[in-house]
Design a protein around this nucleic acid. Structure first.
Lengths: 245, 245
DNA sequence: CGGATTGTTGATAAAGTTCAAACACGGTGG
DNA sequence: CCACCGTGTTTGAACTTTATCAACAATCCG
């Protein structure tokens, strides 16, 4: 089932079978895309939202000087630009990082659903607010953490988010990002990211190589990254052993 | 009317008279608070949301090392923690900066409203997403701008947000923040903020003194801060002359 | 008036950036 | 098959920006 992972293990009443069917029936198309394709452009009217089934998608803003800041990274199960449903226009670009499989949900099909099913509407609203909570955590990461801690924090977050949808075993997972990507997330140069990754490796906390992450000491990594997963609004059992406190 | 400023001049159908009455009737209490009081604490269940009528409110996270990052600053007319309605628990603290007058809206009174009035629900959803859009702009500010540009960007944002609710004339406005506050927003030390403010003053762009901002050259300030107000989702006429492009 | 908070300035230090250059690796075409 | 190319990674060195430390001035509040 395509919407199986939506809201999975979050601190909210899960989608009912009926709601899942309704959402699924709102999907107009399932499509595949190559890597580094732009799916939604900043400032363009948007009439459909993307459910990510496979691959990685980034949401980012490009500066005119060539700099880029990622404002979100989406993993399978994420309703990538659901915020475009009420907003109608996005303030950033959406693009694939890796080859992706996506499901398209036209807003015209979502309208009657949220009108008729207030409980579903409430859950979708909740979903978009988790996104905002992650934004806040990213502000903390960029604003308050040192370079090494930023990278550690990011790896902890992705590890946990992937684990929820079964793509990490809690210690190892594929992560097809370049060091430049990580820099654009953490607001660091690729060169400095490289040094931080080496430092993580040398100190035995975690290895990132060949697009794979292998966390050797999760508690230490979480501590270094000051990682407090509350902001993901996961059920308590999903975050067991993940916090850095 | 207490909810007069909610959604004012945003790119969305304005609240109908009926919706305004409904929202207003959901207000349980109007209260005054002193400066630097905590209103909602991170991790505590929250059963009501705050509509800010007068004063400044900050949303922030404190690190255990005494560092603090503001994740939002709220001005009159803002529905400060409406996201607490679906989320039920916040991932950050909410506190007054200045003395404030606030209206309290119990979630129990909001429930029947959003159930019965899907159009209102949609507008409230929209409102929480503007908040998220502002988060993204703050990530850009912290992540991609130099210190001087961060301060310029912040002043442009607050100028515009205050102008929408009639508290700035577009060039001058009261801003009762300390330099430490600005530092906690922009992720700079108070000392560095002081130097940046001096630089803005010396270069004739803008003066911040005695809790007042006086912008002498708005286009130049917006350019310096790379300020692009799209993320506020204001109606076109509200942003005329404000962009830095 | 006196104490506390806020603002200002200078000197020094640390973190991260920038520039430059080499290296690894997978594909592609001769 | 190998040379070549592009992308991504790695390393070193010089340089910038911002933080940190220390001291003092100004302002606000009771």
């Amino acid at each position: 089932m395509l919407v199986e992972d939506v809201l999975k293990q979050r601190r909210v009443t899960p989608l009912t079978a009926h709601e899942k069917r309704a959402l699924e029936s709102a999907i107009a198309e399932v499509r595949d895309h190559g890597p580094r394709e732009i799916l939604v452009r900043q400032g363009q009217p948007c009439h459909e939202s993307i459910l990510l089934l496979d691959g990685l998608i980034s949401r980012h803003v490009d500066g005119r000087d060539g700099s880029r800041q990622l404002v979100a990274i989406q993993v399978p199960g994420d309703f990538v630009d659901l915020h475009g449903f009420p907003l109608k226009v996005l303030d950033h670009d959406v693009g694939t990082v890796t080859p992706c499989r996506i499901a398209l949900v036209p807003h015209a099909r979502l309208d009657p659903l949220v009108e008729a099913m207030p409980a579903l509407a409430r859950k979708l609203w909740f979903l978009t607010l988790i996104d905002a909570a992650i934004h806040r955590a990213w502000m903390l990461r960029i604003g308050r953490l040192k370079a090494i801690a930023r990278v550690a924090h990011l790896l902890c977050e992705i590890n946990l988010r992937l684990r929820v949808v079964g793509l990490s075993d809690g210690r190892q997972f594929p992560l097809p990002l370049t060091q430049t990507d990580i820099g654009e997330i953490c607001s660091l140069t690729a060169i400095h990211v490289n040094r931080m990754l080496r430092e993580l490796r040398d100190s035995g906390l975690c290895t990132f190589r060949n697009a794979r992450v292998d966390i050797h000491d999760l508690p230490a990594l979480a501590r270094l990254g000051a990682f407090e997963p509350d902001y993901l609004y996961l059920q308590p059992q999903a975050t067991a052993g993940m916090a850095g406190a």
